[in-house]
Amino acid sequence: MQKLTIVIPAYNEEEVLTSSVQKLLDIEDQIAERNSLNQKADILIVDDGSSDHTWSIIERLNLETSRIRGLRFSRNFGHQAALIAGLREAVKTADMVVTIDADLQDDPNKIAEMVDKYADGADIVYGVRNNRDTDSWFKRTTAQGYYKVLKLLGVELVPNHADFRLMSKRALETFLTYPERNIFIRGLIPKLGYNTTEVYYKRTPRMAGESKYPLKKMLTFAWDGITSLTIAPVRLILIIGALACLFAVGMSAYSIMMKLLGLTVHGWSSLMLSVWFIGGLLMISLGVIGEYIGKLTIEVKGRPLYTIQNVLE
């Protein structure tokens, strides 16, 4: 008998959690009724240090049905850490695991199609948005630009895919062998090499509550994605430095020629512009290198990715 577990990271989701869980339970029942896998199913909710009544709701749901399990962090460790914790717990008993956010903006009805594709032999099924009409022009444009930049940097990423996916047990077990702490899940999973496929859906607005990814968090997440998956920015600095050196050699030759011809002009503006430009370039370069050194320091320390305070079986 195959087992399906749905993992839900939740942070301050008291307004939507009860209705979302009920909808997912109904979907699991519908899948079980029509599916040839003869599977059982449950839901694992990871409370990422919520400050509202999210954990109280999880406790109540756990008392109402044994199909609801819960993990509670001691504080807010972040969305990716919550996903990792849920996956580590779910893989112990599940044959396939679906991850989806608590707001259900990703279409949960597509889970049935994911299970079908798993039955057909897919180890990883990506949920991919087929349009971004619900996004603002700014968010839509920056998202598409981000995917293009990552592609140029050599990062293998599924465009318009977030963290709505199904993974088989063996794919999960392989993924969880990756030890790094600074992890960008959606960029790492394509590296596993298992049989993959996609299902397409239209994202809907939140039923209630506020987005947990304001602009500042989105920018931080995007930068983490780049620095966690590629050293291309450091290589770019090397290229820029080499070009700057070549430019300096050319300018030296030009200055000597102008001096011999007696055409030199003492210009304060050009000198200051050069100093500020080179100084700014050096500061940016040091900042990028510092980001990588900082990540290495965190990895070397080997601190835990999260701390679990409570477990509901």
Rank of each mutant, 00 (worst) to 15 (best):
G49W: 03
A90G: 03
Q2C: 09
A119V: 01
L63M: 13
V265N: 11
A10C: 10
K212T: 09
D101T: 05
V155N: 08
A232V: 07
Q2A: 11
A253S: 06
K202C: 07
V249P: 07
P108H: 01
V311C: 03
E13M: 04
Y11W: 09
V149A: 07
V21G: 12
Q2I: 08
G187S: 08
A10D: 09
S252W: 12
I183N: 10
I231A: 11
R170K: 12
K92F: 00
P304I: 00
V265G: 04
S19K: 12
A112L: 05
L296C: 15
I111N: 04
L261F: 13
I308P: 04
W55K: 03
Q144E: 10
L104E: 06
K216G: 05
T220I: 11
L229W: 06
I68L: 01
A90P: 04
V115T: 11
L246P: 04
Q105E: 10
Y194I: 10
A122I: 04
R303V: 06
T65D: 10
N76E: 03
A122M: 05
Y306W: 02
V234A: 15
D224C: 04
G267Y: 10
M167E: 02
T174Q: 14
Y254H: 13
L44Y: 01
R67L: 02
H161A: 15
F247Q: 13
T141K: 13
G78P: 07
E14I: 01
T18Y: 11
V265E: 11
N195H: 11
V46D: 01
Q80T: 13
L305I: 15
K295H: 09
V300F: 06
G70W: 00
D163R: 15
I237W: 08
W223Q: 12
A41Q: 12
W268H: 11
I239V: 12
N310G: 01
A119H: 01
M96W: 00
A94D: 05
G154D: 08
Q22N: 14
Y118I: 08
K202E: 15
D120I: 02
I58E: 01
P108N: 01
Y292T: 09
D120A: 14
Q30C: 08
G279V: 08
T197H: 00
D26R: 04
L152D: 12
T227G: 12
V125M: 05
F184A: 03
Y118R: 06
I100V: 07
V128R: 12
Q144I: 08
K259V: 07
P304C: 00
E173G: 06
P159R: 03
M218C: 02
K202A: 10
V288T: 05
L172S: 00
G287H: 01
V98G: 00
I58A: 07
M218E: 02
V158P: 08
E59W: 03
E28A: 14
I84D: 00
L37D: 08
D116P: 04
G154E: 05
D26Y: 03
A122S: 13
I45D: 06
L44P: 07
I240Q: 15
Y126C: 05
